[in-house]
Simulated scan of single mutants.
Amino acid sequence: MDIRTFRELIEWTRDLHANLARCMSHCATKNEEERARALLDYLATHESEMERIVNEFERQGDAKALETRVIDYLSHNPIKTHRTCDEPYAKLDFAGISREVFDFHDQIIDLYKTLVGKAEIPEAKELLESLLTMEQNESMRLARQVGRMDDL
């Protein structure tokens, strides 16, 4: 996807979460490890919720900020994820799945941090800071939940 505006960035992020949710849900039925299946089910639900939350940013966002042009960052540093689900999570264990998911969220957080530092208009900076805070909070919540599951 060619991202030119903050609206397109939000749509792209929403689509990443949606794709991850679908892939994890699909892989949950294929993984042989019970704990990994439970984790994938939980993560699929969490990523679907992230899709919904990110969508609200677009729905409620400041029109000026949403139409602001994004610098050409993504073409140089694309987020690495399984854009097509070839069942990568079906072969990973609990720890491997956790690493992959936290790496995915860390990449989004790093992207938002970079863009916050380069935002030139206050509305765009505020939108990015809100997206960054949401991703960080959700990542921390996810870490707590996954930690609890790992303790079982």
Rank of each mutant, 00 (worst) to 15 (best):
E58A: 07
E58Y: 10
E58R: 12
R59W: 01
R59K: 12
Q60M: 11
Q60D: 10
Q60W: 10
G61A: 11
G61F: 03
G61C: 11
A63T: 03
A63W: 06
K64S: 14
K64P: 01
K64M: 06
A65P: 08
A65S: 07
L66E: 04
L66W: 07
L66T: 06
L66Q: 02
E67H: 13
E67D: 15
T68C: 06
T68Y: 04
T68N: 13
V70I: 15
I71W: 01
I71V: 11
D72E: 14
D72K: 13
D72M: 05
Y73W: 13
Y73S: 00
Y73N: 00
Y73T: 00
L74K: 06
S75A: 12
H76E: 11
N77E: 09
N77F: 15
N77C: 05
P78M: 04
P78S: 05
P78H: 07
I79D: 07
I79T: 03
I79R: 07
K80P: 00
K80N: 07
H82L: 08
T84N: 11
C85E: 11
D86I: 11
E87Q: 13
A90Q: 12
A90H: 09
L92H: 06
L92F: 11
D93F: 00
D93E: 13
D93T: 09
D93G: 13
F94G: 01
F94P: 04
A95V: 09
G96N: 09
G96K: 08
G96T: 07
G96V: 05
I97C: 02
I97K: 12
I97M: 09
S98G: 05
S98E: 15
R99Q: 11
R99C: 00
E100I: 05
E100C: 09
E100W: 02
E100A: 15
V101H: 01
V101N: 03
V101P: 00
V101R: 03
D103S: 09
F104P: 04
F104A: 06
H105N: 15
H105W: 01
H105K: 15
H105M: 15
D106C: 02
D106P: 00
D106Y: 15
D106V: 02
D106G: 11
Q107H: 12
I108L: 15
I108M: 14
I108T: 09
I109W: 14
I109N: 11
I109Q: 12
D110S: 12
L111R: 08
L111A: 07
L111F: 01
T114V: 09
L115Q: 14
L115S: 02
V116A: 02
K118F: 14
A119C: 07
A119Q: 08
E120H: 08
E120W: 02
I121F: 01
I121Y: 03
P122W: 13
P122I: 10
P122Q: 12
A124Y: 13
A124T: 12
K125L: 02
K125G: 05
K125W: 02
K125R: 14
E126W: 03
E126Y: 04
E126Q: 11
L127H: 03
L127I: 04
L128S: 05
L128Y: 01
E129C: 05
E129T: 10
S130F: 00
S130N: 14
L131P: 00
L131C: 08
L132C: 02
T133C: 00
T133Q: 12
T133H: 10
M134H: 08
E135D: 06
Q136S: 10
Q136V: 11
Q136T: 09
N137K: 14
N137Y: 04
